[in-house]
Structure formats: structure tokens, C-alpha cells
């Protein structure tokens, strides 16, 4: 991916860029809101990583300026503020995702991949989703694997829909928490893991191929490998 990082702290920016480079992503850098905005308007990026707290022009103003110019480049906001209302404010301003600082590279990459895919129109409006022999009927809100009907609780359905919309992508625990529960707090323990293992038990009966994989140190991935 070709990315633009707008972040005022030079040291953070350096490490993030080097980290992204290690993972194979090119990343430009703008130190102020104005630098970042002019870079975003003159070059083409797959996604923009935008710090909220910036000198001269703050992150939300940069975002609003971008959107008012008709730019639809996916934007991920980085912020030290991580409460629900901060997140809602960021999303309402036109960002595609919101990530609290400090973050891990895997989390950042997973979220960037998700918003870039969505922006490229891979996920079309559809009434059903399918991966391998697993099929999700969005209208009937039901799932089946082959001929076997899978009984899902509400949250399990929401988790599965999210996985299927992000098939093949790494999905982190916080992404799942936000998707299925709208949580801004970490419920701690291994709450998400427990839910995923229940969903997995329903998806993968004896003799069926594994679909829901654990990605060590990152999260999960729904994929027909």
C-alpha cells in the first residue's frame, strides 16, 4: 500500500514509517496539518493515517478539508483520546476508522487493509456472502455450511458477518469488539477469544475443513486455505 502519515511527533513518525516499510508499505510523511493536506491533495494514496492532534490545522479540519475537496481516500484517525464520544466525533467527521494511540503495527495494518478494500469497492451490495462452502444469508440472517444449517446467536451472527465481509484479512480483537459491541473499552480477560472459540465450534464440525484461523499476536482470519 502507498500510505500518507500525518503526525507531528517526528520520532513516532519515523518508527511508524520504518515499521510499515519492514512490512512492505511505502509511507510519506507530513508533519503539520497543512503539510499533510497539501501532500494528500497532490499525490494519490491508498489510505491516509491522520493524527488528530496537530499544530496549525488539527486532524479533523484536515479531514473536513479533504472531504470537501471531493477526496474519497480512506482515512484512519490516530488519537490519544479513545473514549466513545471521541471516536464518534472522528467517524462523524468523515474518517473510515479510528485507532487509539498507542497502537500496534498489526492493528494498524489490519485496519488499513480493511478500509482500503472497502474503498476499492471489493465489498459490493449483496444479499449473501460466501466463502468455501460457508454461506451467510444477509436477508434471512441465517448461515449454513454445505447443507448443514448453523444456529447462531445474535452476536455470533454479527461476528461472522464481519469476518465474511473481511474474508482473508486479519481481523484484530478490538476490531471485533467495535464491530459487534461498539465498545471503546477493553472488557479484558479473554472475552473475545471465548466468543470466537464458540463461533469456531459452530462453524467447524468434525470432518469439516478449518475456516476461522488464529493469527498469532494479531487476531483472527476467516479464510479457506
Amino acid at each position: 500500500m502507498k500510505l500518507l502519515l500525518i503526525e507531528d511527533d517526528a520520532s513516532t513518525a519515523r518508527y511508524v514509517r520504518e515499521g510499515l516499510a519492514e512490512l512492505g508499505h511505502a509511507c510519506d510523511w507530513g508533519q503539520t496539518g497543512l503539510d499533510g493536506l497539501s501532500a494528500a491533495l497532490t499525490n494519490v494514496y491508498d489510505a491516509i493515517i491522520l493524527d488528530r492532534n496537530l499544530p496549525q490545522l488539527d486532524g479533523l479540519s484536515v479531514l473536513q478539508a479533504l472531504r470537501s475537496e471531493g477526496h474519497t481516500t480512506p482515512v484512519l484517525i490516530l488519537s490519544a483520546l479513545c473514549q466513545v464520544d471521541d471516536r464518534v466525533k472522528g467517524l462523524n467527521a468523515g474518517s473510515d476508522d479510528y485507532l487509539a494511540k498507542p497502537f500496534s503495527f498489526t492493528e494498524l495494518i489490519a485496519r488499513l487493509v480493511a478500509i482500503v478494500r472497502r474503498g476499492s469497492g471489493t465489498v459490493a451490495a449483496t444479499t449473501s456472502l460466501q466463502i468455501s462452502d460457508l454461506e451467510l444469508d444477509l436477508l434471512g440472517r441465517s448461515a449454513r455450511r454445505g447443507v448443514r444449517r448453523i444456529e447462531l446467536l445474535n452476536k455470533e451472527y454479527q461476528l461472522l458477518e464481519y469476518f465474511m465481509r473481511h474474508a482473508g484479512q486479519v481481523v484484530t480483537r478490538t476490531m471485533l469488539l467495535e464491530a459487534a459491541w461498539d465498545y471503546s473499552f477493553d472488557p479484558g480477560s479473554n472475552v473475545v477469544d471465548v466468543h470466537i472459540s464458540r463461533l469456531r465450534a459452530k462453524l467447524e464440525h468434525e470432518g469439516e475443513s478449518p475456516l476461522l484461523h488464529t493469527v498469532r499476536g494479531a487476531g483472527y482470519q476467516l479464510d479457506a486455505r
Partner: peptide, 25 residues
């Protein structure tokens, strides 16, 4: 609170990024 969040998290973000970079390398 907001200022504290920002001031605390800026160095922590650096530390975390540095740690991850070191682990990647």
C-alpha cells in the same frame, strides 16, 4: 484529562512503535 492523555501517549506510542520495529527486525 485530554492533555494528560496526549502527553502520556505520545512517548508511549514511540516506545511501542520502537519495540514493534525491533521485534520485526
Amino acid at each position: 484529562t485530554d492533555g494528560l492523555a496526549h502527553d502520556l501517549k505520545t512517548p508511549l506510542t514511540r516506545i511501542k512503535a520502537r519495540l514493534e520495529l525491533a521485534m520485526l527486525r
